[in-house]
Design a binder for these strands. Structure first.
Length: 1119
RNA sequence: GCUCAAGUGGCGGAAUUGGUAGACGCGCUGGAUUCAAAAUCCAGUUUUUUCGGAAGUGCGGGUUCGAUUCCCGCCUUGAGUACCA
């Protein structure tokens, strides 16, 4: 009977679906095992053969674990929010939900054909409101939490509030924004609700702030650092620029250390751990503060703004926002003592409006460093009045009347604040730096600030002013990419100012240079040229002294960057010490003297969480008095509203700004029409949506209890399944999904919501499957120029006669030979007159041919190629063949549509079957490695399946014998059991496919048809080739699915041998083998070998110096 | 530049603790079957050879009775990251 894969596979796929064979039980006595694939994004292009690789591996493991008696959870779902569907929606006007739904349907159909044992009853989709309800819920939990460094975990915001109430914020040890103003308990209690909320935002784990973000104009949204590759967007490769915007952020930096520590506890690939470690970028060192000298050179007294600020100011005066214009229209009419100015600088701050005569500042709220501004303005004797954009737009008259009130009844400025500020004002400027080498502080010979550093304009002397400004202008012009690409050019300029070395008291020059990055550390470095190559190069270029503080080290050529072995010299109290001790002592001294302290810096930035896109989770947030408010969890989900178009609004708001019903009625507790915004209890809702990683950061927990409507997942389910035991997916998620998901998991763990703080115990990165592209060689003819005698027209005639010619691969070995071959062909066929042969030039180009047109022997189907839809240009081409066929060149490349090398799994399944596809994908090579796909290879596993099938048949009749298995047959079976089990457990799936082949070859040779062998063999094979195994299993008379069968138990007694075919080597080289009994002692073996005639021949009369005998392994004769 | 991973036949790859290098499969060569093709089956397939052998796992050293495997240096390829103080 013929093996008919189509019928068999269809039947069993139907059987599994109908019987819910792979549904996981949550009330099982069995031990649990959770196998998960990384969340797929259902793209419109569908699957190619590279995609199922990881799914097949995880499916094999899941099925194996079921045979081994585990209760296995093996779910699947879709990360269905995201950019591609939205880009498509913008282009076609189709609702992303619709296209997503269609893509999922295609995806599912393709998956089903491969025979995966997914438990589809737990399917989740991130774009489903029942799912994102809980994503919103987690967001609220984050909002209501702060990170307490004392307990080293996230706590409810209420514990922070109670500390504030009792003792203010001076002693709170929390992860927060930088530059937080201190306040006492009394002050806290006196703050207005809005003020309190503004302060709490600085502590919450998700918070709203003005941050420099990566704005991508091409996509119309901001991007996280991990969504940018080489300065352009990961999706679509659009340029990205820096821009300041008010955004939701996630305080992932609070977890930096724990994210590092957690890596120690999980079994993940080292390269992945390395890249997370790298991304987090921990560096241990010290913060040191250098005073700027009040030098002899005159420092200009007027308050200056940095170049950037001045440029921004000019622009701002001209381009007022809508709210600003409305308010200015009212204020500008005021005359006399109440005259207002717009965009005016007070100190280093830019204020929106100021009335100088009445000392009133009017500002829009939500600016950076609001507390610091207030403090500074108070010191200068100004009263500050703040309004939100919305207040002004909605009722400008009430705003104006409040301003009038402030002019008439100025608030008394607190004396305490004034006194404190006066004290600090006496102090000169300080430059804070972070260094990982405080032990080399005596090697500091200058300092370098980033050109953007705020102090630059304030400390630059008049003499250097022109040079500094010129340099800053020049740097500002260079794009981010230019600066990144050009590392070699050393540039900088002296500010004229000096800093005081905190230990030695010496004056060191302060420079600016663009090798110092504004957004890392403090944007300033203490330069130690003898110990840092960049500082060294800088010092050399500008002839700054390079003091040597290393004992016995030559620094005339380059800096000495090593640290461990070298002793410090010329360094006062640090002299003679090695790195470790000097480091500790230097920090100790700094702390004692009060100008520095030990600090650990992380490169990891807080993650921007807002996206100006439509197709994402809406935030459960509305705004009241400019302050974000969470919607109570019981009113979730806040469902994504319908919009007419998916583009930003005309005034630049995100797409949700197009929604007509997007306001929160705080009384009715529901989303209502925007028209009701006039009501006092109706507020605008957040217009941003969440980023793609929101839904994928916790989905693995949802699978444990996917249908739960009351909770994110029940406690019982979470406690039973705990974490993913095996997680398989691509390495591209290393610093995105996998870092964010670990962060959320740790947060949920802190809040007692999940029982473990790492969500995946073991992770495997499957390698990419590459395509084997096919190329044809195309000949293009040109006419040589410059003869000067012939007229152009006749040359055109020559060219017009020449058709496109394609040359088979092995007909030439050089470009010259190629030209000759083509010319000879053209002349033979009469396309080219021999008279014109010399004026024609032939150039070779390689073009991709669709791989489906090429057979296993690299031969092109010429007719199919000519008639291929994409090859209209070659319809009338001539082909130069070799031995009657056209051979193509093959090359391994990434699988992609543009390279015509994409192989669709559906086609493979139709022709060879899902079992063959599964076996072949595994057979290609180690799971973790990248490897090329070559469809020709599949015939090997296909004939294996046919051979296996044959073992169970006597011609047309299914027939297995009840006879006892022979020793030989049992040996084959048990060898296979042992090897397959070992292979699966170390995820070496390719070698177990070989093992099956060997077993079937051996059993065929032995003509074995014993049930005792063939029945357990099916269980071994069933994780790999489940359909054929089920079919033969049921033919053997079994009523239940093979997935319920126990894995065969290995018995070593079947492998016991009485003799061993020993390899006999001479000086380590194997020369011949000799069969000897395993009962022999070492001495007997040695004797037997030495008297053997081949040994004597090998030795050629020499006496062996030594004979190594490893019983059961090898014999080595030295001599 | 730095970090990590990997280099084995014509190709994908195997060799699990240092113990017979090239399993298994593709491709190729020859044969059987067939009117012929496909499919199937059999034999061969690292290089070299005076047919006894000899050499051989990117290159050069080392440790060892014995190294694809361990150590040192170098070369090549791939991935990540990038003026990170």
């Amino acid at each position: 009977m013929q093996y008919n894969h189509q019928e068999i596979e269809e039947n069993w796929q139907k059987f599994w679906a109908e019987n819910q064979t792979f549904k996981a039980s949550s009330t099982s006595e069995k031990p649990k095992y959770y196998v998960l694939d990384m969340f797929p994004y259902p793209s419109g292009a569908g699957l190619h053969v590279g995609h199922p690789l990881g799914y097949i591996a995880s499916d094999i493991y899941a099925r194996y674990k079921r045979h081994k008696g585990f209760n296995v959870l093996h779910p699947q779902g879709y990360d269905s929010f995201g950019l591609p569907a939205e880009q498509y929606a913008i282009q076609t006007g189709q609702h992303p939900a619709k296209t997503t739904e269609a893509n999922i349907a295609t995806y599912r159909k393709q998956l089903d054909k491969i025979g995966f044992s997914f438990d589809w009853s737990t399917e989740v989709r991130t774009s489903n409101p029942e799912y994102y309800k809980w994503t919103q819920w987690i967001f609220i939990q984050l909002f209501n939490s702060w990170y307490h460094k004392d307990t080293d975990k996230a706590e409810d915001i209420s514990t922070l509030i109670s500390i504030f109430k009792k003792s203010g914020n001076a002693k709170v040890n929390a992860v927060s924004d930088e530059d937080i103003a201190f306040f006492s308990a009394e002050e806290w209690n006196a703050f207005s609700t809005t003020e309190k909320e503004a302060i709490l935002l600085q502590y919450r784990l998700t918070f709203l702030s003005d941050t420099e973000v990566n704005w991508c104009p091409g996509l119309g949204t901001v991007l996280a650092n991990d969504e940018i590759v080489n300065g352009v967007s990961e999706r679509g490769s659009h340029p990205v620029v820096r821009k300041k915007m008010t955004q939701w952020s996630m305080r992932i930096s609070a977890y930096a250390q724990r994210l590092l520590d957690g890596l120690e506890t999980i079994d993940w690939p080292q390269p992945l751990k390395d890249s997370q470690t790298n991304w987090i970028g921990r560096s241990q060192g010290a913060m040191v503060s250098f005073d700027v000298a009040n030098g002899t050179e005159k420092v200009s007294s007027e308050v200056k703004l940095s170049y950037k600020e001045l440029e921004a100011l000019k622009e701002l005066r001209q381009n007022l926002s809508k709210a600003e214009t409305i308010l200015w229209d009212e204020l500008k009419n005021k005359k006399g003592a109440a005259k207002f100015r717009k965009k005016y600088t007070i100190g280093a701050f830019l204020v929106d409006y100021v009335c100088l005569a009445k000392n009133i500042i009017v500002e829009f709220s939500g600016k950076e460093e609001e507390a610091a501004r207030t403090e500074f303005f108070a010191k200068e004797g100004f009263n500050v009045v703040r309004f939100t954009n919305e207040e002004v737009i909605e009722n400008v008259l009430s705003v104006v009347s409040k301003i009038n009130a402030a002019i008439q009844f100025p608030k008394a400025i607190e004396k305490g604040a004034k006194k404190e500020v006066a004290l600090t004002a006496k102090n000169q400027y300080k430059i804070a730096v972070f260094t990982t080498r405080p032990d080399t502080i005596f090697g500091v010979s200058f300092m370098t600030l980033a050109p953007e550093h705020e102090l630059v304009s304030k400390i630059t002397t008049d003499a250097q002013k022109a040079a500094v400004e010129k340099y800053i202008t020049a740097t500002a012009k260079r794009s981010e990419r230019d600066r990144m690409a050009d590392v070699k050019t050393i540039s900088g300029v002296f500010t004229g100012a000096y800093a005081i070395h905190p230990f030695s008291g010496e004056k060191v020059q302060i420079w600016i240079g663009d090798y110092v990055l504004a957004n890392y550390g403090t944007g300033a470095v203490m330069a130690v040229p003898c110990g840092d190559q960049r500082d060294y190069d800088f010092a050399k270029k500008f002839e700054i002294p390079i003091p040597n503080i290393f004992e016995g080290v030559d620094i005339s050529e380059e800096a000495h960057t090593g640290k461990d072995a070298t002793k410090i010299a010329n360094s006062d109290f640090l002299s003679g010490l090695k790195y470790k001790k000097a480091l500790k002592l230097s920090i100790f001294e700094m702390e004692k003297r009060g100008f520095g302290y030990g600090k650990i810096n992380y490169r990891l930035r807080d993650a921007v969480f807002s996206r100006q896109r439509y197709w994402g989770e809406p935030f459960p947030v509305y705004y009241k008095d400019g302050m974000p408010q969470m919607i109570d969890a019981k009113h979730l989900p806040i469902v994504l509203p319908e919009v007419e178009k998916y583009l930003p609004t005309e005034d630049g708001k995100p797409p949700l700004g197009n929604a007509t019903a997007w306001a929160w009625d705080s009384r009715a507790k529901k989303v209502v029409s925007n028209e009701k915004l006039k009501n006092k209890t109706v507020y605008p809702l957040e217009l941003n949506t969440m980023p793609g990683w929101a839904g994928s950061s916790w989905y693995f927990n949802r699978y444990m209890d996917a249908a739960n409507t009351a909770e994110f997942a029940s406690k019982e389910a979470l406690d039973y399944w705990k974490e993913v035991d095996l997680y398989i997916g691509g390495s591209e998620h290393a610093t995105g999904h996998l870092l964010y998901a670990r962060f959320w998991q740790k947060f949920l763990f802190d809040k007692g919501i999940v029982p473990v703080d790492e969500f995946a115990k073991k992770l495997i990165n499957q390698g990419m499957i590459l395509g084997t592209s096919a190329f044809v060689y195309k000949a293009t003819a040109f006419v040589k120029e410059g003869c000067g005698c012939a007229d152009e027209k006749s040359n055109d005639d020559v060219l017009n006669k020449i058709p496109t010619v394609l040359v088979s691969k092995n007909l030439f070995s050089s470009d010259d030979e190629f030209e000759t071959v083509v010319k000879n062909y053209l002349m033979d066929k009469g396309f080219l007159s021999p008279l014109n042969a010399d004026i024609v030039m032939i150039v070779k180009t390689e073009i991709h041919a669709d791989v489906s047109l090429v057979n296993t022997s690299d031969e092109l189907d010429v007719d199919a190629f000519k008639n291929h839809a994409l090859n209209a240009a070659y319809k009338n081409s001539e082909f130069i063949l070799e031995d009657g066929v056209y051979k193509v060149k093959r090359e391994v490349e990434k699988m992609s549509k543009s390279k015509y090398n994409v192989v669709n799994p559906d086609a493979i399944v139709a022709q060879y079957g899902a079992d063959a596809l599964r076996l072949f994908e595994m057979f290609l090579g180690p799971l973790e490695q990248a490897k090329p796909w070559k469809t020709s290879g599949i015939s090997g596993v296909s004939s294996f399946l046919k051979k296996l099938w044959k073992l169970y048949f006597n011609e047309e009749i299914f027939e297995v014998s009840k006879e006892k298995a022979t020793k030989e047959e049992l040996k084959v079976l048990h060898k296979t059991i042992k090897k397959v089990q070992e292979d699966i457990e170390r995820f070496s799936f390719n070698t177990s496919v070989s093992t099956f082949m060997i077993a079937v070859n051996d059993l065929t040779t032995l003509k074995c048809n014993k049930r005792a062998i063939l029945e357990p063999l099916l269980v071994l094979l069933s994780p790999y080739a489940p359909h054929i195994s089920e079919e033969l299993w049921s033919k053997l008379g079994n009523k239940k699915s093979i997935s319920t069968a126990d894995f065969p138990v290995f018995d070593a007694k079947h492998l016991v041998e009485s003799a061993k075919n020993y390899p006999i080597s001479f000086n380590g080289k194997m020369r011949f083998t000799l069969e000897l009994s395993l009962d022999l002692s070492k001495e007997e073996i040695e004797k037997a070998v030495l008297v053997h005639e081949k040994t004597i021949a090998q030795l050629e009369g020499r006496t062996p110096k030594k004979v190594i005998v490893v019983p059961g392994k090898i014999i080595n004769i030295v001599g």
